[in-house]
Design a protein around this nucleic acid. Sequence first.
RNA 1: GGCCCCAUCGUCUAGAGGCCCAGGACAUCACCCUCUCAAGGUGGAGACACGGGUUCGAAUCCCGUUGGGGCUGCCA
Length: 463
Amino acid sequence: MTDEIRLRFAPSPTGYFHVGGARTALYNWLVAKKSGGQFILRIDDTDEQRNKDEWTDGILAALGWLEITFDEGPYFQSQRKSLYSETARRLFESGLAYFCSCTREEIDERARLRGGRPGYDGFCRDRGLQPKEGYALRFKVPDGETIVDDQVRGRVVFSNSTIEDFILLKGNGAALYVLANFVDDVDLRITHVIRAEEHLPTTPKAVLLYQALGLRPPVFAHLPVLVNEKRVKLSKRRDRVAVEDFRDQGFLPEAMVNYLALLGWSPGDDVEFLSREEMLDRFDLSRVSKAPAFFDVVKMTHFNKHYIMIMELDRFVEESVRFLESEDFWTGDEAQRAKLTEVAPFVKERIALLSEVVPMVDFLFADLKELGLPIGPFSDSDQVILSRYVDRVERLQEFRKDDLESEFRELGEELSISLRKLQAPIRLAVTGRKVGPPLFVAMEVLGRDTSIRRIKGALGQRV
RNA sequence: GGCCCCAUCGUCUAGAGGCCCAGGACAUCACCCUCUCAAGGUGGAGACACGGGUUCGAAUCCCGUUGGGGCUGCCA
């Protein structure tokens, strides 16, 4: 029982769930799962002003999408308040904490007079104040030093003189992060705390609390922060970091997870594509790097492309439908799905984001005009190509891609023109675009009538 | 300002004293392949922040400098 490994992910629901949180959750999950331990979800919503249920729903949805599953929870700190006041009372009664009547203004004023150094000066330490509405409860930081033994950073020593008597309970009696976090970690028997580096400076406070109550602190591991191109911590306000946005853009969860796993961790060899099983097998906190890492969407896109390419065809079709459904032309009927399935293998290996499916296949489902696609321009030589090609394919018994291609190649020889140049006007006439699936596949799926109609239509469109 | 963390190609990283005139991946450039776009293949350019030590020998250890970051709230 005491040997049981238990980790938790404790996000605060103050905004969209972002990639940094996802990475933290993933690392916790990995350590829990590979050690046969438990992974617990706890919602740190002690700050009622800034928390909203919808953010919690978003976190749950995103974790589910990424398949980061939890064994217990979610627990909500907002529902565990009595636990915090109970511990606070014990701390106060045993003289480890005291009440303080100072306002922010008073503290700042004294700091100013003292000579600039901001922070609380311990003014109420020995005043023997009793609990009262409006009084905050502060922890009496002892002399000496506090050591944080960190799995990724090693031994970090803090001189207690640099740690002010921090607040445990607000004036309204509500618990603050350090207290609530500590109480819950103890109560939930958390053995490993893995979180972002920004929490490192508050860690000695937690350690002090464990020591004050004669408890053994958990193992700590502080992950390097994720930064933007300016190398400052990723922020929900400045940067595009919401997991759900990436999902909506057509990123695959396995691509995100794989990329995130490698952002700050490396298996040690040159392998980059790792399945869940391989990650579980190889993940090791001691191989987590210490330096901040740039969240590079371009590289994540590369992972996405890879995972789209190796995806099962059926799933690819289903995922594609998600993006087609928001288009007017998509009815989702049998015929449309059949066409989609036919071109899918060719589309699958050409896109990096699922959202790119739409411009790859839209010409199959609606008139080019309706799609706002150009019909032309076609030069005189294009006209020659189009008319000669349509003459040829009109005579075809079967409108099959192989025959369409044979005719195409023969025409190329006949006109002594490179196939690259030859395909351009035909593709534009048939699909309205310069890029897309292989032309003859496109034509076969589109069908004889529409294909020929579009080419003939283009013939009437001189520059 | 104070406390703390960090420092290898543009980016993510490998490297735990000699295997490194530093390897891989993304991005980038060139060429090949090719019906477009992709994919694939070949090749190129591209980094140990700086200065001192320690050592026969340092990207790797120590110190300093510089640079970057985090925290500094009755937020988490």
